[in-house]
C-alpha cells in the first residue's frame, strides 16, 4: 500500500532524486561515534538543530496562551505557569532550550573551528553558520522581554540604551526596536514579539536551509 502511494507520487513528481539527496548517502567512519567515540563532537551540530526544533514546537504551544500586551503579557505567562496543564514544562523547555541552544551552538562552532573544517571549499557555509549564531542571539535577546517581568523590562531597557549609543543610526535603531524614542512600553513589546516570532525565525529557517543544502552538496569534511 505504502509502496503504491510512493509510486503514484513518484510517477508524477519524481521524488526519488529528492529522497536520494536527503537520505541516501554514506556516513564516513571518522564522524561515526560507533567506530570512534571521540567522534561525538560531530553530534553538536545535530543536537543544536534538535534543540531548535524543541524551541519551535514549544514556542508554537506557548503562543496559544501568550498575549503580547503590557497588561496581559505577564498575567498570561503567570497563568501558563500556574494553571495550564503541563505548561510549566513547555515553558521550561523553551526557557532552558534558549540557553542549551547557545551552548550547543558554541560547541559546534568550536568543533568546526579547531578542526579547520571551514577551509576551502566550505567558507560560505561557515559564514552562514555565524549568521545563524547571530540570529539565535537575537532570538535570545527579543525573547527575554516577552514575559514582561522586571528582569525582562530592565534588561531590555539597558539593551536599548546600548543600541542608542551607536553613532549616527543609534536613535533610529532604538526607535525601530522600541517603537518610540523614549518609551519602553506597549509598542516595544509588540515589536519584540513580532521580531521574535516572525522576523528572526523566518531568517533562521532560510539560513538553516542554506546550511543544510550546502552540507549535502559539499559533504562532511574529511578526517584530520
Amino acid at each position: 500500500m505504502l509502496q503504491k502511494i510512493y509510486d503514484w507520487i513518484d510517477d508524477r513528481i519524481d521524488i526519488t532524486p529528492i529522497w536520494r539527496d536527503i537520505a541516501d548517502h554514506e556516513v564516513p567512519e571518522h564522524v561515526n561515534p560507533a567506530h570512534h567515540f571521540s567522534a561525538f563532537v560531530y553530534c553538536f551540530g545535530g543536537l543544536t538543530f534538535f534543540v531548535v526544533v524543541i524551541q519551535i514546537l514549544s514556542g508554537m504551544f506557548l503562543t496559544m496562551y501568550y498575549v503580547p500586551d503590557i497588561e496581559n503579557a505577564w498575567q498570561s505567562v503567570y497563568y501558563l505557569q500556574t494553571e495550564v496543564a503541563h505548561a510549566q514544562i513547555v515553558r521550561g523547555m523553551h526557557h532552558w532550550g534558549a540557553s542549551v541552544v547557545v551552548v550547543m551552538l558554541l560547541l559546534h562552532t568550536l568543533r568546526v573551528f579547531f578542526q579547520g573544517a571551514y577551509k576551502k571549499p566550505r567558507e560560505l557555509n561557515w559564514m552562514v553558520g555565524v549568521l545563524i549564531f547571530f540570529v539565535i542571539l537575537g532570538l535570545g535577546f527579543t525573547g527575554y522581554l516577552l514575559p514582561w517581568d522586571n528582569k525582562a523590562y530592565f534588561a531590555t531597557q539597558v539593551g536599548l540604551e546600548i543600541a542608542e549609543q551607536v553613532p549616527f543610526i543609534g536613535e533610529a535603531l532604538k526607535t525601530l526596536l522600541a517603537g518610540d524614542a523614549t518609551i519602553v512600553g506597549a509598542q516595544t513589546l509588540t515589536r519584540f514579539f513580532a521580531i521574535h516570532v516572525f522576523f528572526l525565525p523566518g531568517a533562521l529557517f532560510a539560513l538553516l536551509a542554506i546550511h543544510f543544502i550546502l552540507i549535502r552538496r559539499q559533504g562532511i569534511s574529511g578526517p584530520l
Binding site: 505577564w74 514582561w148 522586571n150 528582569k151
Partner: peptide, 27 residues
C-alpha cells in the same frame, strides 16, 4: 526542565528604581 522550573519575576514595574538589571547569561 523538571528540576528547575523556569523563573518568572514580578510584573514589570518601570517605577522600581532599586532594581538592578542583568542581561541573560550569554550577554
Amino acid at each position: 526542565v523538571l528540576a528547575h522550573p523556569s523563573p518568572l519575576e514580578g510584573m514589570a514595574d518601570p517605577t522600581d528604581a532599586a532594581y538592578i538589571p542583568l542581561p541573560d547569561w550569554y550577554f
